[in-house]
Design a binder for these strands. Structure first.
Length: 473
RNA sequence: GCCCCGUUCGUCUAGCGGCCUAGGACGCCACCCUCUCAAGGUGGUAGCACGGGUUCAAAUCCCGUACGGGGUACCA
């Protein structure tokens, strides 16, 4: 019952924007830090956008991020009557009025009167009667100013002369978000409005409505710095990777994403960046949020994700990566996938991978029927330029012929031993791992071979060694 | 145009008048480890936009300037 009440109020656009996700996160952090209530409200004032699909596009990513809401989702569209009532009340009280001027007509009047572009309250005294296509405009005060006491930005004062008589109800009778905002925030008992800085300019208008409606003490506002791209522009869905769902698909972990997002516009005072969410909740305060826009750096996200992956237990990692390991487009027949093998090699993979989506590429050679192609650069380096490559492969095959392939340490020492023996015999350094690796994996780099060889088994290993040997000739 | 906001290493940040010859992280570079690739370890690189004040003392407070951004809709 007590405690702050905050809301995350996204417009249903069909996907969740990372900037929105960040706003949601900060609302959530504030609510959890203060023991308050986090309300999810879908801002669907703009008519009929609210299909289940659009709602899912908001709730699924939020749930994925672990941002649980205490109330909602509430729909602004379902509260339309109350918004309309508020509009009617303002009209009845003379605080708002009807206007039937089109954009063009307004411009024409401006030109005629030699006024700068703007509305200039043209219909204030025209006694327009309501009807189809007629909008309602709020009679904004001509003098004085409205002050927003922003927790993050401090005192922001806007002169009323710069606020024109804005529309609060469209020509089709639907209320715009400004009035819906005021009414809903009031009725839902919202105490703190935490949102992006792009909304800062609309706040005085909402405050004006709030006052005109006699709602009393308005909520406290906190405008978060925007998330920008490399060009320092507001993240746009045109050029930037903004859909949270894309990050999910690319194999980022929710905990990593959440941690990374928390670091944009905020930082813990003890400088420990990667840490459990409980600690972030504990340290988070609105007062410590920055004012300057932040660039969402993919490199930093990668680093954080990699750290989280390394910290996972092998089992948790494999379970998380399995959607990719068993995907239809995996680089091997999915039927060959073996969780036991993947699990045994998990730690080696975790150490090398940035996202979950990269996992299959490190394990493919264990699940493939045969090595179809060899990386030519690596082949050239390990075989063509190698010292007696054919000999190395032959000797390894011979040395391994009677091994049961159950002891990875023995496999390692046998293979290395071949290199050492040949080095002595030819009195030059002979590497044994490189030719073996390309024979087994087709590549020049990868996870350690020994453990993997025990899973591949003697027959497959010897087959691949023979196949590579045959390719030399 | 008008209104509003912002400015600490390339990037994200710590700093909230003396502890700052500005700290951490990412990135980058070097070295160590290493018969692959990584991981790990060590070290390095680089910043208070500029100009005036206020003060014994300013990255921290005030005012300008520059630059950047946001808004200016019958979108939210």
């Amino acid at each position: 019952m007590s405690g702050p009440r905050v809301r995350f109020a996204p417009a249903p656009t069909g996907f969740l924007h990372v900037g929105s996700a960040r706003s949601a996160l900060f609302n959530w952090l504030f609510a959890r830090h203060t023991g308050g209530t986090f309300v999810l409200r879908v801002e669907d004032t703009d008519e009929a956008k609210t299909s289940q699909e659009f709602v899912d596009a908001i709730t699924e990513p939020l749930s994925w991020l672990g941002l649980d809401w205490d109330e909602g989702p509430l729909f602004q569209s379902e509260r339309r009557e109350r918004h309309v009532d508020a509009v009617d009340r303002l009209v009845a009280e003379g605080k708002a009025y009807f206007c039937d001027l089109t954009r063009d007509e307004i411009e024409a009047r401006c030109e005629e009167a030699g006024l700068p572009a703007g509305y200039h309250g043209f219909s204030r005294d025209r006694d327009v009667v309501d009807g189809p296509g007629v909008v309602v405009r709020f009679r904004a005060p001509d003098e004085g100013s409205t002050v927003v006491d922003d927790v993050i930005r401090g005192r922001v004062e806007v002169a009323h002369e710069t606020i024109e008589d804005f529309v609060i109800r469209r020509g089709d009778g639907s209320p715009v978000f400004l009035i819906a905002n005021a009414v809903d925030d009031h009725e839902m008992g919202i105490t703190h409005v935490i949102r992006g800085e792009d909304l800062l300019n609309t706040t005085p208008k909402v405050l004006l409505l709030w006052d005109a409606l006699g709602f009393g003490e308005p909520p406290t506002y906190a405008h978060l710095p925007l998330l920008v791209n490399e060009q320092r522009k507001k993240l746009s869905k045109r050029r930037d990777d903004v859909a949270l769902a894309d990050y999910v698909a690319r194999g980022y972990l929710p905990e990593a994403m959440r941690n990374a997002l928390a670091l944009l516009g905020w930082g813990p005072d003890d400088e420990v960046e990667i840490r459990p969410i409980e600690e972030i909740i504990e340290r988070f305060t609105l007062e410590s949020v920055n004012k300057a826009p932040a660039f969402f750096d993919p490199k930093k996200l990668d680093h954080i994700n990699a750290e989280y992956i390394k910290a996972m237990t092998p089992m948790a990692f494999i379970e998380a990566a399995e959607p990719w390991l068993t995907a239809d487009d995996a680089p091997y027949p999915v039927a060959n996938y073996d969780r036991i093998v993947a699990l045994a090699l998990a730690e080696d993979v975790q150490q090398r991978v940035v996202t979950l989506a990269e996992a299959p590429a490190w394990l493919d050679w264990l699940f493939v029927d045969a090595i179809e192609e060899y990386d030519e650069k690596s082949w050239a380096k390990a075989i063509v330029k190698g010292t007696v490559p054919g000999r190395v492969l032959d000797d390894i095959a011979a040395a391994l012929a009677d091994d049961d392939f159950t002891d990875r340490d023995r496999l390692e020492s046998v293979v290395m031993g071949v290199g050492t023996a040949l080095s002595e015999e030819l009195d030059t350094r002979v590497m044994s791992q490189a030719p073996l690796r390309i024979a087994l994996t087709g590549r020049g780099a990868g996870i350690p071979l020994w453990e993997a060889m025990t899973h591949l088994g003697r027959d497959v290993c010897l087959e691949r060694i023979a196949a590579a040997g045959a390719r030399i000739d």
